[in-house]
Simulated assay, not measured.
Amino acid sequence: MQRALRLLEAVASHREGAPAKQLARETGLPLPTTYHLLRTLTHEGYLLREKGAFFLGDAAVRLAGSGAVQNRRIKIENSLARWRDEIGVPIYFALYREGEVELVAVADTPSAPAVEEWADFRETAHAHAIGQCLLGQLDSKTRQDHLDRYPVESITPYTVRNRQALLDRLGALGRMEPLVERQEYALGTVCAAIPLTAGSTVAAMAISVPLHQEDRLLPAIERLRTEIGALFSSVVLSISI
């Protein structure tokens, strides 16, 4: 595995490709071993061979791309953990991508646990703060399409009553105003979410606290909004690509 990775790294350093003998010299591998690995990597789609030179194939490009996305996710998770510790509440980060709510990362602690996903977040966007915040950023047609696929239904006795009530709530929100949800998804829990703006990306962050600590909710979400909005805009844009 290590020898194959060395070969891939060597090929990647030559935008116009490189022949087997040159790759063997650069990696320090015996020429027969180099030929064997190059054939295997080409067969698996990690390399392409044209006119005696080797180039990165589609499989290698996909592998590199997935690694970059993973690194960006780790960066987001580390940032969430830092602000979780600063503010002392669970923090959630989500995107709306390809017609679905995607919960990318959650940071919590045993003493401040996140809300348990007892009903699929993708199907219940109308009932939780981060989902409502994402829906609020969509254009009318996209929002209506989402609600056609995932109708407004009661999750708790406090869930928004119907589609029109939800649309009225979203329409009344200011552009960067936090969206607050009280026990609509989980009894005994209140949540608030803020939109994150980065190009055309639809993203949001949210926090949750127990109902008896509701007085902490707005100060905490306001601190989150003012202090990390700029930090996350570049990260949101990069992970959405």
Rank of each mutant, 00 (worst) to 15 (best):
S79H: 03
L135Q: 03
Y185M: 11
V160T: 15
E86Y: 13
M1S: 12
S66I: 09
L5W: 06
L8K: 01
T109C: 09
T201C: 03
R149E: 09
H212K: 14
V160F: 11
K51Q: 12
T159C: 14
P110K: 09
E123R: 14
I228K: 02
V104R: 04
K141L: 15
E227M: 06
A193V: 08
E9C: 04
V106W: 10
S140E: 14
M205G: 10
E50H: 13
V104I: 15
E123Q: 13
L29F: 03
H146N: 03
S234T: 14
Y158D: 07
Q22D: 10
R62Q: 04
L37T: 02
V11K: 12
G57P: 08
E181D: 14
A204V: 08
T159H: 08
F121T: 05
L135E: 01
G28A: 03
L224M: 12
A107R: 12
E86G: 05
F54W: 06
R149I: 08
A119P: 02
I130Y: 01
R122H: 08
P90N: 02
S200I: 04
A10G: 12
D145P: 00
T27L: 00
S240H: 13
L135H: 02
E222M: 13
E227P: 01
V190F: 08
G57V: 10
A24Y: 00
R49G: 02
R6C: 07
H14M: 06
E181P: 00
I87R: 03
E227Y: 01
D120T: 07
G28R: 00
Q132W: 04
T197K: 06
V101W: 01
G57A: 05
A129N: 04
